[in-house]
């Protein structure tokens, strides 16, 4: 196994606030990991630490490099989109291609131009003349044309309409992802990326509360939709979270086999969004 990102006891404080609190995890090569957490959970801080934009305590290694101290080497093998607003508005499309071609050893201009020709982005346009969706397409085209090992996306589709969001993830999978590259992504719109993730991590109050592969989820988590009477019985199996839908009780269990729940109601695998709520709210309860 080759770890692209390896974190051991990583912490970062702002004054008395612990944005990341003693976090350890590994991200393997070729995985698409979703980092999911509520606002202020430490997602962005963690990404910044991975990108070498901020220093942190503990041991953090990205592609075998210390991200903060070897940032230039790191940036040759890593790409990131922080959110759609960050491309400089005054620059022309061709100018930005010229610039990246000159400073980035792994950028293929012809590939970027090929990808751009499939979009509505005109080469002579300025970024400020493009719509938000086009800016994101442009940014993704640049990044796809960079032969990088790790792509970090922080809320890449924030503020985009649904068509642009679908297009973005479609292009990401079709043009960018090849099984060799690794993607780390944060977003609020969990449902949209659920199907493309191979792994998920939940972060809350600076701590990782779940780190699992998507394949393992059905085994570890199970949801039961039961009538009120059956719910009584099911509660003895210690659900991690309970909610009510259309008069029925929905209980979520961790580490409880499906067989034990059969007969009490409808058994299914919880969606990532529900799991997320259960993990975060359950932890708070």
């Amino acid at each position: 196994m080759t770890s692209v990102v390896s974190a051991r006891n990583v912490s970062k404080s702002y004054g008395s606030i612990r944005a990341i609190d003693d976090v350890s995890f590994d991200i393997e090569k070729g995985k698409i990991t979703g980092l999911i957490g509520p606002n202020g959970a430490g997602k962005t801080t963690l990404l910044k630490a991975v990108l070498g934009l901020t220093d942190c305590r503990g041991s953090l290694s990205v592609l075998g490099l210390d991200p903060f101290r070897q940032r230039k080497e790191l940036m040759q093998n890593i790409c990131f989109i922080a959110d759609v607003a960050v491309l400089p508005r005054w620059i022309r499309v061709t100018q930005l291609l010229d610039f990246i071609e000159a400073v980035h050893p792994r950028f293929s201009r012809s590939r970027a131009e090929e990808l751009l020709s499939q979009t509505k982005v005109r080469p002579d346009a300025k970024v400020r003349e493009l719509s938000k969706g086009m800016v994101t397409q442009f940014h993704l085209s640049i990044i796809t044309a960079i032969d990088a090992k790790l792509l970090v996306l922080d809320e890449p589709t924030l503020g985009l309409d649904i068509i642009s969001r679908k297009e973005f993830y479609g292009n990401l999978l079709n043009d960018y992802f090849d099984g060799e590259r690794t993607i780390l992504i944060t977003t609020h719109q969990v449902e949209e990326i659920e199907n493309l993730l191979t792994d998920i991590m939940f972060i809350n109050d600076g701590k990782i509360v779940l780190d699992a592969s998507m394949e393992d989820l059905p085994e570890r988590y199970v949801e039961l939709m039961a009538s009120t009477e059956n719910a009584e019985e099911a509660r003895r199996l210690k659900p991690i979270y309970e909610r009510e839908v259309f008069g029925k009780k929905v209980l979520m269990f961790e580490g409880v086999s499906r067989d034990r729940l059969q007969g009490m109601g409808e058994v299914r695998t919880p969606g990532v969004a529900d799991l997320f709520v259960a993990k975060i709210k359950g932890a708070a309860a």
Binding site: L53, M75, A82, P88, R89
Partner: peptide, 17 residues
């Protein structure tokens, strides 16, 4: 200017120190 328009995040994603 790069901080005001937040493009600094983009410029810092480029391999220049």
């Amino acid at each position: 200017a790069e901080r005001k328009d937040r493009s600094i995040l983009f410029w810092r994603s480029i391999p220049s120190t």
